[in-house]
Simulated scan of single mutants.
Amino acid sequence: MEKYDIKVAHRKLYSPSAKEFVIVEVPTLQYLAMDGHGDPNTSAEYAEALEALYPVAYTLKFESKKVLGRDFVVGPLEGLWRADDMTAFTRREKDSWDWTMLISQPEWITSEMVAQAIATVTSKKAIAAAERVRLETLSEGTSVQILHIGSYDDEAPTLERLHTDYFDAHGLTFNGDHHEIYLSDPRRTAPEKLKTILRQPVRPR
C-alpha cells in the first residue's frame, strides 16, 4: 500500500534552503486546525491544541487505512501566527499572539471523517478540547520561505530581514498569516538544532 507523505508530495514546500529566502507557490491544502491565543510556552490553550490535534490526526490515519485502504504519514505540526501589529513577532511579544495550530491532511479526508474521528477521540480518550478541532482549507499562493535552524526565540533577526530588506528589495508586502512548520520535536532536539520553516504569503506592494 502506497503511503502518502506531504513532505514528499510537496517536497519544495518542506525542504527550503537555510541560506536564502525562496519564493514558492503553495497550492490549496487542507489541515486539521485549532485556534488559540497567547504565549505557546505558557498558554493552556496551546497545550490543549496539541493534546487534541494529534489524537484526531492519528485516528484519521488509522480509519483511512482501515476503511479506504489509503494510508498516510501524519504531517508535522504547523502554525499560523497573527497579531494586530506584525512587529510583535520580531519583538517576541508572545502574549499578544493569536494562532491556529495545524496538521496537514490528504485531499481525500472529508469533514464527515473528521467529525467521526473527533467523536471517537472524545469518547475513548475524554479529550474535550478535540471538539474544537476543525477541517480547514488554506490557499496561501505566492509565499516566501526559509529554513530556520536554532531556537524559536532566535527567529526575530530572520523575520526582520524578511519584513524589511527582502520586502523592500522585491516590492512585496504581507498577504496572510505568518506560517511556521516544525520539522523537529522540541522534546527530543536541542534548541540550537531545531529546524523550522518560516513562510510568509506575499503580494506586490
Rank of each mutant, 00 (worst) to 15 (best):
E2Y: 04
D5Y: 01
P16R: 00
A18C: 01
V24M: 02
Q30K: 05
D35N: 13
D35M: 01
D35C: 01
G36M: 03
D39S: 04
S43L: 02
S43V: 07
E45Q: 15
E48I: 03
V67A: 12
V67M: 08
V67P: 05
R70W: 01
G75Y: 04
P76H: 10
L77A: 14
W81C: 09
R82M: 13
A83Q: 02
A83D: 13
M86I: 14
A88H: 04
T90G: 06
T90L: 10
R92I: 00
R92K: 05
E93W: 03
K94E: 00
I103Y: 05
E107A: 08
W108L: 11
T110I: 09
T110H: 11
M113W: 11
A115C: 02
A115Q: 12
Q116A: 12
A117T: 10
T120E: 13
T120R: 07
T122P: 03
K124G: 06
E131A: 14
R132S: 13
L135P: 10
L135G: 11
I146R: 15
G150C: 00
G150W: 00
Y152E: 00
Y152D: 00
D154H: 14
E155C: 01
E160H: 11
L162M: 13
L162I: 02
H170M: 07
H170D: 07
H170L: 07
H170V: 09
G171V: 00
L172H: 03
T173D: 14
H179I: 04
E180A: 04
L183G: 07
S184A: 06
R187L: 08
R188A: 15
T189R: 14
T189G: 09
A190I: 08
P191I: 11
E192R: 10
L194F: 11
L194Q: 15
K195M: 13
I197S: 14
R199E: 06
P201E: 09
V202I: 15
